[in-house]
Amino acid sequence: MPETGLEFSKEPTEVAVSIRNLSKSFNDVEVLRDVNLEVKKGDVVTILGSSGSGKSTLLRCINWLEQPERGSIHIAGERIGVTDEGRAMSVKALARVRAKTGMVFQSFNLWPHLNVLHNVTEAPIHVLGKSRHEAEAHARELLDKVGMSHKADAYPNTLSGGQKQRVAIARALAMQPEVMLFDEPTSALDPELVGEVLAVIKSLSAEGYTMVIVTHEMSFARSVSDQVVFLEKGLIIEQADPETFFTNASTERVRKFLERNK
């Protein structure tokens, strides 16, 4: 590969995630088709779309839980999954880049054998190599932030869904990620527990965290986003600021979707 100087590997630092020409299929079904998306540092981008539109797949490509066939993803200027020479990254290198993202799952996926505090400190200690003392101090701060510090010694099986999800958010934040990825964070929750989780996510946006959120909560998306993206059959068919998106969408498909999801 020819030497092209600095611009070859360096993205402008204010871009947290840059997705270019991303395509992905499962067997013969194309789930993502030539997706381009840029997430600026400090921005909140929500991804909307009906089931099977590819929105979760897009999110899972960002931290390489799914491997796209074509295209590239950079996280804070560093390409994930593929080395500069175009080969698949080593497991170690991939783990290092992945650690720049924090992910919150629909089904929480806490580690049940560890208590709340240790769920949050596990990766900082054993992936980032922080000292236990430092990791625990940081974890207590984060648990405080999500309103879960009183449950630090509890085990996940004793928590409600909303509490589990708030711990999962603290766990992801503990990695001090460049970007937080939320994969339908409230879809597995009882309706009365949705609010507490959305409130936490909102408070994070106020603090300037960069976030990419897949959600079905329209009013939440409207109030929290800097940018809304609508996926349909693997294509981004609408991308706008929330005001424009929710009041003045340019495509018929989006207007229908919003009508049905009022």
Partner: peptide
């Protein structure tokens, strides 16, 4: 499998 995904997402390698 979700727990394994969570571990991967948090930068864990296979052995750890």
């Amino acid at each position: 499998p979700g727990q394994v995904e969570a571990a991967k997402a948090h930068g864990f390698t296979k052995g750890k």
